[in-house]
């Protein structure tokens, strides 16, 4: 038995995948699209539902919103809706896949308050893999004064001949305004430190990729979140990672006027791999994690 698996029967393995991201990163929408894809996957495909879950209230609510292309209600802090799906995994028998939908505030507040909920900590301890979601429109950069000064030097001196005021008092340091990549690296370090596993595969999913347009998700990560990209590359032996670009709705949100939305909901979502080539459906990041364990 490899690390990250527990047997629940002669041919069933329990996997838990932790889905993390800052608020608005697309976790709940991804879960809705994933549930739909797994539900309709035909028997014989490499990630299909073996048995309908005992409880469906939360998934039904997500499905309602997702099918109607409406924004799913964000999870609130300290609450999670654990979704456990009994699946036929890629080539290794039954898989019990547990995917709690924790609020993005859990990660943001862990950065500032240096605490997270006990239930979250328990899940972190045993998680087999991570889905890290990032929204491309919600990346807080680090902007240094000398970088701005360098690029705007001439414009500034033309428009405002006054010298900068060296006596200006700085705004107090506010950790909430830290760069997105710093907070994400911190969360991965905390997860790694609280995990009981030596090796945790991470599928980095850039959500709303339809809004990014051209390019490759791997290149996007290196360009927009270089600290995170370096961190993952430097720790590939213990945190192997793969980057995906995904569109859980298949279109911008709300769909632009006149844009044709596929009739069938399962035809809407799409995923591309790190190099920009099409991946195998919305469940591709989950498959990658399961294969990487």
């Amino acid at each position: 038995m490899s690390l990250g698996e527990e047997t629940t029967g002669p041919s069933s393995r329990r996997r838990s995948i932790l889905m993390v991201g800052l608020p608005g990163s697309g976790k709940t929408t991804y879960l809705a699209a994933l549930w739909h894809a797994i539900r309709v996957a035909p028997p014989g495909s490499d990630l299909h539902l073996v048995r309908m879950p005992d409880e469906l209230e939360y998934l039904n609510r997500l499905a309602d919103d997702w099918i109607a292309c409406e924004q799913a209600a964000h999870s609130s802090l300290g609450t999670s809706r654990r979704t456990t799906l009994e699946l036929q995994g890629p080539g290794d028998g039954h898989v019990q896949l547990s995917l709690p939908d924790y609020s993005g505030e859990t990660i943001r507040q862990a950065w500032t308050s240096r605490r997270w909920p006990t239930s979250f900590d328990r899940f972190v301890g045993g998680a087999s893999g991570l889905l890290l979601l990032v929204h491309p429109d919600d990346v807080e950069p680090h902007v240094t004064l000398d970088a701005v000064e360098g690029s705007l030097d001439k414009i500034a001196s033309d428009l405002n001949p006054e010298q900068p005021d060296p006596t200006l008092r700085p705004e107090p340091f506010d950790p909430d305004r830290a760069p997105t990549q710093t907070i994400l690296v911190d969360s991965l370090q905390l997860i790694r430190s609280r995990s009981r596993r030596r090796r945790i595969p991470i599928a980095v999913c850039v959500s709303a990729w339809d809004a990014v347009g051209d390019g490759e998700p791997g290149g996007w990560l290196s360009a927009r979140l270089p600290l995170l990209a370096q961190f993952l590359q430097s720790n590939a032996d213990v945190l192997p990672a793969s980057v995906f670009g995904l569109s859980a709705q298949g279109t911008a949100w709300p769909p632009p006027e006149g844009e044709r939305v596929p009739d069938s909901p399962e035809d809407r979502p799409w995923v591309i791999a790190a190099d920009g080539t099409p991946a195998d459906g919305i469940a591709a990041p989950i498959r990658w994690i399961l294969r990487s364990l």
């Binding site: 680090h142 004064l145 200006l168 700085p170 705004e171 340091f173």
Partner: peptide
């Protein structure tokens, strides 16, 4: 590290990095 970088960033509201 973030705290030490703060006064060199636009978020500090300063015009000259410190």
């Amino acid at each position: 590290l973030e705290e030490r970088c703060h006064e060199g960033r636009v978020a500090s509201g300063l015009e000259v990095p410190k």
